[in-house]
Amino acid sequence: MALENLHEFLNDYFVANKCDILENDNGKLKVQLTDKMDEWLMNRPFYWQYVKKLGYAGEPMQVTFITNPDRRDEDGEWIHFGSPRLHQIFNTLTTQGKFTKLFEQVETAQRTALVPWLVVNFRISYTGKHKKDEIQSIGLHLINGGMKINMMDELEQLPLQSSIPDFCYTITPMIKLKSGYQRMITYIEKYLQKQEHSWAQESWDHLQEEKKLVEHFYQDSDEEEQYENRFDQEMQAVEDRYQPQINIDVINGGIFYLSQLQSTKILTE
């Protein structure tokens, strides 16, 4: 699955990381990196080590990225979905964008209450003979326990900010973070139980078959000495490849304070 608009994504990324955009035109993006971004992306640790040791101000680079394939012969670095640079950026995001606390922007002159939500984005990976991922975005109303699936779709519609808006106050959660998270996990586990897991059955059957083959192979083997070791190792390798498993990982998550109005809307939709 590719990003819908790679160019916009890059632009947003550098803006969000406080880099000046020097040129932005028809699939070409020229960026003045900050010190931090240069350190993260330009792979020159020795330079930065040296600069810092001597107490100099470093000179972060200017970089030109090309996202328009028709212009890839021009000066600059061609960025596409598979390019290592993009994945380097993705990697910075996994830590940079992992935890958050955000508030809905509310224009008001009266005291307004904001309701706490726990929002967690999960990646569920199904691994057997083959592997696939599924993304689940879950929001939990920490006062009334209402749960919303595809929460990110809702949040994308709202203006959000990092500081609490004027005249607003937050309501203290009734449900503790940890037990809220537990409710989400329980929900996912129930969801998984309802599914049909022919992929796992297939992989499991295959695992048993392969184990039998290995056993048979070593049964009348004359490699006595290393027999035990080898056998265990081969069995382990077979398990590693076929043991069906499901991993529930968190992509990111945090606390969102939303207005009563929005909260109700989200839960009744």
């Binding site: 935890f99 990110m152 990111n252």
Partner: peptide, 24 residues
């Protein structure tokens, strides 16, 4: 602690969606 802005949070989510493989 200082936490992620909406933009970075959202982009982190987007990149995870983009790099996951929904089919076996």
């Amino acid at each position: 602690e200082k936490l992620s802005s909406w933009d970075l949070f959202h982009m982190s989510y987007q990149s995870s969606v983009a790099t996951s493989t929904p089919e076996f």
